[in-house]
Amino acid sequence: MRVTVVGGAGYKGCVLVPKLLEEGHDVVVYDLMLYGDEGLPEHDRLEVIKGDIRDVDAYTEAIEGSDAVINLACISNDPSFELDPHLSREINFECFEPMVKATVDAGVSRYIYASTSSVYGISDAPEVTEEHPLVPVSDYNKYKGMSEPYLLKYQSPTFTTVIIRPATVCGYSPRMRLDLTVNILTNFAVNRGKITVFGGGQKRPNIHIEDITDLYVDLLTRPPEQIEGETFNAGYENFTVRELANQVKRVVEEEFPDVGSIEIETTPSDDLRSYHVSSQKIAEKLGWTPQRSIEDAVRDICRAFREGLLPNSLEDDRYINVRTVKAQSLQ
């Protein structure tokens, strides 16, 4: 297949693209390159295009001849979104339907959209399923959820659409993010010997980056009748932030015994997102279940630190989306 990965130079894309190439697909990455493209491999079946998803003509040219589009693109996380709410609305919502329509018009037959499980906001439900009301607590969550119906609107026998609502992703990527819960906690534990927990009681589902990218690869070849017009949660382990911190503490102390006992400090938080995501639907309908744990993610990041793959991790802006976006001019 010829697969276009929109936003393919980011955290998930830099793990996904090598897998697509290994499967024998021709791959196009269409990305604004806010974080550069250093995390992507060099390959004769990979074409990398710097482009803005608001530019429909450029996007249309990029997807020419593609069989499938995997859309990972957005201004991700609340702090980055809030730097320029108008611009973020343009990128995360207003350009979405024109982009989908252009995809249909280009003859692409499959569209995989990476939404987010944070669309559920705050919920006391013991299991948050795909039918749960969307109660977003920020504009970032709201616009991700508002985009979903615009994709389903174009579902047809010749255009297979599927929406994935991933849990918070964790683990190592060549384009590393150290502003995601498990990744933040691991960085601080390894390099400060101290973890700060904001709040602690919030429930946060997580999924290993290798698992979520395996899922995107898998969805490319599923029979249309299994996935057409469907929305799936994709998570694995649901823990409170405090429980995550305790796991990170234990694993890092095992991986880096010289660090000694890692302190956990708790402070108040205004981030109230809390929900326990159910991934039963995707397990039952597709037989798909994650294979890697949060502990695996922490050990992978520890290995990256040992191998010198994450230099200056406490200070370098490239690991923190909001700092990188702030330094860019996107107008």
Rank of each mutant, 00 (worst) to 15 (best):
S117L: 03
I112F: 00
A114L: 06
C95W: 05
R89N: 04
T103S: 04
S109Y: 04
V128E: 00
I91H: 02
I122G: 05
E131N: 14
A125E: 12
H132R: 02
K101E: 14
Y120F: 14
E94H: 12
P98A: 11
V104F: 11
E130S: 14
G121P: 11
E94C: 07
G107R: 07
P126K: 01
R89W: 06
E94G: 02
A125L: 13
S123D: 04
P98Q: 01
Y111T: 02
Y113A: 04
F96T: 03
S118M: 07
K101R: 15
P126Q: 03
N92W: 09
E97M: 11
V108K: 07
P126A: 02
M99P: 09
D105T: 15
Y111S: 03
E94T: 14
E131G: 05
F93E: 14
P126Y: 02
T129S: 09
E130L: 13
S88V: 12
G121F: 06
S88R: 03
S115H: 12
L87R: 10
G107F: 13
F96A: 06
E131Y: 10
K101F: 10
A106D: 11
A114R: 08
S115W: 11
E127R: 14
H132T: 12
G107V: 03
S117R: 01
T103D: 05
N92I: 10
T103Q: 02
A114D: 14
A125W: 03
N92F: 08
A102F: 07
E90W: 03
P126E: 04
V108E: 08
F93L: 15
V104I: 02
D124Y: 10
I91R: 02
A114Q: 15
V128S: 00
